[in-house]
Structures are given as structure tokens and as C-alpha cells.
């Protein structure tokens, strides 16, 4: 071997690593650029206010106390609608995951009703439930219900059958098999469903508050639109996305706690 040459490295890459600073930097850069462009008058002030104006609008909402009222009203509707829709969805979804008859009966109904945009049903809900809180809660509840059903029963299917055979081989009663094997085993799928339904609830609260709501983030955004208060409108949108981030953080914490075993 006369010539000794080092072997060239050709591995590495294709391995996403968490980068903490990059997202923050991108965020700051975009906002900064936007502020600069507004300040230089490159952006039409009439149709796109600067970030600072949006922050000022948010500040105004905090100081006059309307922020709490709007967020409180929306959170109330989201929480109630989500809890009701989730409870009903889990009950039906788990039943469909466990009983063949329930699945045979439920699947066509769910498949037929799931794709209907719940916003299109809003007028119907208003006829049924009036223009008060019930129609708003129902809109969110229905929107949450169907994805929860589907998440729950597919999650049941994804529980390894050998675990159920094992439980049977130890003589566990059927109820114990449901609570000790099926439900915990379906938890990852159910929690993944929660992420989707939480976003759906946030989307639907805006639609639900279009009709007859005095307070609420959706009502606020809508009236800001009607009043051409673009800074207020964007402040409302900012609130929504902050709410979305908060919900996602909470769900992340729940997932980490409940699914520690994964």
C-alpha cells in the first residue's frame, strides 16, 4: 500500500435535530420586517396595520377589560362544547370499537354525517336551539363529536389483539378487559384525536359566534371586520392563535403525562 488516503466522510444529514433559536429568530425577523415596512409606508395602512398597532389594540382590550370578557365567553363555549362532544364521541366511539353491532350501526351514520361542514348546519342549530348559548355549544359539540368517534374506534382497533387474548387467558372479565386493556391501549389514538378536535373547537367558536353573540373572540373579530377595524381584527386573530398555542401546550403536557409509557 503505497498511497495512504483518508476515507472521505459521506454520512450525516437527514437527521432533524431540535433547533431552539431558529423559530424564535424567524418569528422576530418576520415581525420586524413587517413593522419596518409599515413604518416606511410600504404597506397600505388602510388594509394592513403594523404589528405595533395590533399590540396597541390588544393593550386597549386589556386596559378596558374587554379582553377577559371576550376570552372568557369563548373559552366557556369551547370548554362546554368540547367536553360534551368529546364525552358523547368517546362513548359512541368506544362502543363502536367494542361491539360489532354498534360499529355496523354507527359507521354508516358517522361516515355520512362527518364530512358535513358544521358551519353549514349553524342555521339549523339556531332553529333547534335558538340564538343563545345552546346553539353555539351545539355547533362546537357536533364538530368535536364525529372526529372523536372516529379517533376512538380506530384507536380501539389499533390495540394489539394479543393483549386482549392475554387478558382472556387470565380470565379477566369483559368489563375489565375494556377498562384495563382497550381504553389505555386506545389512549394514544384518542389523545391524537384531541389535538384535532381542539383545533376544530377553536375554528368553530368563531363561526358559532357569528350569530347573536355579544362577547367572544369570534364575535369580536366579526364586529371588528364589520367596523373595518383591521388592527382589532388582527388582534382578535392573534388572540385565537395564542389560544391555539396554549391549548396545544396543555395537550402536549397531558400527552407527556398520560403516555409516559411510550
Amino acid at each position: 500500500m503505497a498511497d495512504a488516503a483518508p476515507v472521505t466522510f459521506r454520512g450525516g444529514g437527514f437527521h432533524p435535530r431540535p433547533q431552539r433559536l431558529v423559530p424564535v429568530a424567524v418569528f422576530v425577523a418576520v415581525i420586524g420586517l413587517w413593522q419596518f415596512a409599515s413604518w416606511r409606508g410600504w404597506l397600505p395602512a388602510l388594509f394592513l396595520p403594523s404589528p405595533w398597532e395590533i399590540v396597541t389594540a390588544l393593550g386597549g382590550m386589556i386596559s378596558d377589560g374587554s379582553l377577559g370578557r371576550h376570552v372568557g365567553a369563548s373559552l366557556m363555549r369551547i370548554a362546554l362544547g368540547w367536553v360534551l362532544g368529546t364525552a358523547a364521541g368517546l362513548a359512541i366511539g368506544l362502543a363502536m370499537g367494542i361491539f360489532s353491532v354498534a360499529r355496523a350501526a354507527g359507521l354508516p351514520v358517522v361516515s355520512a354525517l362527518f364530512p358535513i361542514p358544521k358551519i353549514a348546519l349553524l342555521p339549523l342549530f339556531i332553529l333547534w336551539f335558538g340564538i343563545g348559548e345552546p346553539s353555539k355549544v351545539a355547533t362546537i359539540g357536533f364538530g368535536v363529536f364525529f372526529p372523536t368517534v372516529i379517533a376512538a374506534y380506530t384507536a380501539c382497533d389499533s390495540v394489539p389483539r394479543n393483549l386482549i387474548r392475554m387478558a382472556q387467558s387470565f380470565g379477566l372479565p369483559p368489563a375489565a378487559i375494556v377498562w384495563k386493556i382497550l381504553v389505555p391501549g386506545a389512549m394514544p389514538g384518542i389523545l391524537a384525536g384531541f389535538r384535532i378536535t381542539a383545533s376544530i373547537a377553536l375554528i368553530l367558536v368563531v363561526a358559532a359566534e357569528m350569530i347573536g353573540a355579544q362577547y367572544g373572540i369570534g364575535a369580536f373579530i366579526l364586529s371588528a371586520g364589520n367596523l373595518n377595524q383591521i388592527d382589532h381584527l388582527l388582534a382578535g386573530v392573534t388572540l385565537l392563535s395564542l389560544l391555539g398555542l396554549a391549548v396545544s401546550a396543555v395537550l402536549g403536557a397531558v400527552e407527556r403525562a398520560v403516555l409516559r409509557w411510550r
Binding site: 339556531i126 332553529l127 335558538g130 340564538i131 343563545g132 357569528m210 350569530i211 347573536g212 353573540a213 355579544q214 364575535a219 366579526l222 364586529s223
Partner: peptide
């Protein structure tokens, strides 16, 4: 007065007919 914004004259009329306002 409790104001209910209903977005359209049609909705306003419907709410009145339905005794919701």
C-alpha cells in the same frame, strides 16, 4: 338592552318570528 348581532335582515326576521328576541 341586550343586543344580538344576527348578520342579516333575514336572520333578524327569523329570530323575531322564533321569539328568540
Amino acid at each position: 338592552v341586550t343586543l344580538k348581532p344576527l348578520q342579516s335582515i333575514a336572520n333578524v326576521t327569523a329570530a323575531l318570528k322564533g321569539e328568540q328576541v
